[in-house]
Design a protein around this nucleic acid. Structure first.
Lengths: 144, 144
DNA sequence: TTCAGTGCAAAGCGTTTGCAGGGTG
DNA sequence: CACCCTGCAAACGCTTTGCACTGAA
């Protein structure tokens, strides 16, 4: 198994928690990074394309661990499965077109006014989790 | 069955679409209004507390119809079931504390800057669907 | 050698669907 | 009296869980 910066990070954080470094955990983290935005199912498929026989429950359990370690994050970009992405990328806000399903990423600065407004109330917004639904330019232009 | 303004609205809109006014549809719409924010399951329980034997599938099908008619809306305030609310109330944005689960409603004005920013991109935000996750003042003050 | 991690299978939860009977318009 | 709507039951998609075995440290 090759060593990458992210892998070192994984190994370190796992050790801190008394957890173990396994091939599955490395592969699943790599899959999330490669796919950029992926559901557990897509992660499973990606991992299986490299190594046979990885179980779905392992993917779910691993994504949970990786999220606790702060290496991945998830957001709900559809009514169905959640979407995971690596925290190596910059934090971003998702805008999802409900008509065509396209996901656009925006800089967190876009929602800063909202964050500030709610902060006045003592509410701390989890920007990375934010999903904004609506209709994109292409779909809107096409008319209804 | 009593007649209310909302019920008249329901009857009218159903007729426009060639659909039928049934006791179930009236009860389910009323339940959503009474509960303010409710999952399909909670709506079902509420309706059943008044009339026995209403089926879950009827609730799902009816909520879908009511949403198409523009009488109710839904947002995803948890990782599980969606939450429905009546459109009689003013449109509002939801802020959900991930720690205690409390849902706070905010005026859409709070997110206007975001709406404007994305509008510059041709993206039309569905404000009513928006759910902002984070941590509320009480939970934040308590420390981690 | 220990105990965290895995695969497997079954169950869980929320939701959808096919069908036949029932009630609205 | 046509046909929309309902209840029922089964199936569905995604996720979680219990258990015994495996393998990392």
């Amino acid at each position: 198994m090759k060593t990458t910066p992210m892998n070192d990070d994984l190994a370190t954080r796992l050790k801190e928690q008394g957890l173990r470094l396994t091939p599955q955990r490395q592969l699943i983290l790599r899959a999330v990074e490669d796919l950029r935005h992926a559901t557990p199912d897509e992660v499973l498929a990606h991992v299986r394309s490299q190594v046979s026989s990885v179980n779905a429950s392992t993917v779910y359990r691993t994504l949970e661990v990786l999220e606790e370690l702060g290496l991945v994050r998830h957001a709900h970009l559809s009514d169905r499965a959640p979407t995971y992405h690596s925290t190596v990328e910059h934090e971003h806000v998702h805008a999802v077109c409900r008509r065509c399903g396209t996901v656009r990423s925006y800089d967190p600065a876009v929602v800063q006014p909202v964050v500030d407004a709610l902060a006045a109330d003592g509410f701390v917004v989890d920007v990375g989790h934010l999903a904004i639904f609506g209709e994109c330019a292409e779909c809107g232009a096409t008319g209804t």
